[in-house]
Amino acid sequence: MSALPTLLEHAESERDQIQLALQRAEENARRAQAQADQLDGYRGEYRQRWSAQFRQLGAAEILHCYRSFGDRIDEALTQQQQQIETARGHVERLRQRLVAAETRVASVRKLMERRALEQLRLQERRDQRQTDETAQQIHWRAAQADAARH
């Protein structure tokens, strides 16, 4: 029974560490998504701004610059989406680990409760046995005293 509190403390510590890691991972995933949203918004603004420019100037050099920079924005968005997917996968794995850690903590607590209840029942049986023996001795002495009087 003495090892169970140590085991519980270890399981709770592990769960708490996983919980902190999950919070950090969720924040990283949120930041990655915000960055992707920002890039996507910038890409939309860029396209809108340059489409207005094309109506005014139709130079091939400008079109080439537009496409080149647009391609780089698209590449950055693709990379950002990959980072988002990686971050989401990490979050999901940490959630699964957290569930497993919480299950371990609950299991150790339940085991400790069962052991404590078992000890309580054992002590109650000892107390009842002691009470029964005391009552039996009192009855026996009373019977001996009654027999001695007669």
Score class of each variant (00 low, 15 high):
Asp146Val: 06
Leu122Thr: 10
Asn28His: 13
Leu111Arg: 02
Arg121Met: 09
Thr78Ile: 06
Glu102Lys: 11
His139Cys: 05
Gln17Ala: 15
Gln38Lys: 07
Glu45Met: 07
Gln82Tyr: 09
Ile84Asp: 03
Ala87Arg: 02
Ser68Leu: 12
Leu57Ala: 02
Glu102Met: 08
Gly70Asn: 07
Val108Phe: 08
Arg104Lys: 15
Ile73Lys: 02
Ala101Glu: 12
Tyr66Gln: 11
Gln128Lys: 06
Gln128Asn: 06
Gln19Lys: 07
Gln38Pro: 00
Gly44His: 11
Arg43Met: 13
Leu111Thr: 01
Arg30Asp: 13
Arg115Tyr: 13
Ser68Lys: 03
His90Asp: 14
Ala21Gln: 12
Tyr42Met: 09
Ile73Gly: 01
Glu14Cys: 02
Val108Asn: 04
Pro5His: 05
Ala87Tyr: 08
Val91Arg: 04
Arg114Cys: 03
Ala3Glu: 12
Leu39Ile: 05
Leu94His: 08
Thr103Tyr: 14
Ala60Thr: 01
Ala142Ser: 09
Ala76Gly: 07
Leu4Cys: 00
His139Phe: 05
Thr103His: 12
Asp16His: 03
Arg125Met: 11
Ile62Val: 11
Gln80Cys: 02
Leu120Met: 09
Val99Glu: 14
Glu124Ile: 10
Gln48Pro: 00
Gln81Gly: 05
Ser68Val: 00
Ile138Gln: 14
Glu12Ala: 15
Glu45Gln: 02
Gln81Ala: 13
Ala59Gln: 11
Gln23Leu: 07
Leu98Asp: 03
Gln80Tyr: 08
Thr131Met: 13
Gln56Leu: 08
Ala135Ser: 05
Glu124Leu: 14
Arg104Cys: 09
Thr134Leu: 14
Gly70Trp: 07
Ala3Val: 10
Ser51Val: 15
Glu113Gly: 01
Gln35Leu: 13
Ala52Val: 07
Val91Asp: 12
Ile62Gln: 02
Arg55Glu: 10
Cys65Lys: 15
Gln123His: 15
Gly44Tyr: 14
Ala87Gln: 12
Arg97Val: 01
Ala3Phe: 14
Ala143Pro: 00
Gln79Val: 06
Asp40His: 04
Leu98Trp: 05
Gln82Thr: 13
Ala25Val: 06
Arg114Thr: 10
Arg129Pro: 02
Gln130Asn: 07
Gln144Cys: 07
Ser51Ile: 12
Ala3Asn: 11
Ala76Lys: 13
Gln83His: 09
Ile62Thr: 04
Asp16Glu: 04
Arg115Thr: 09
Gln96Asn: 10
Asp40Gly: 01
Leu20Ser: 10
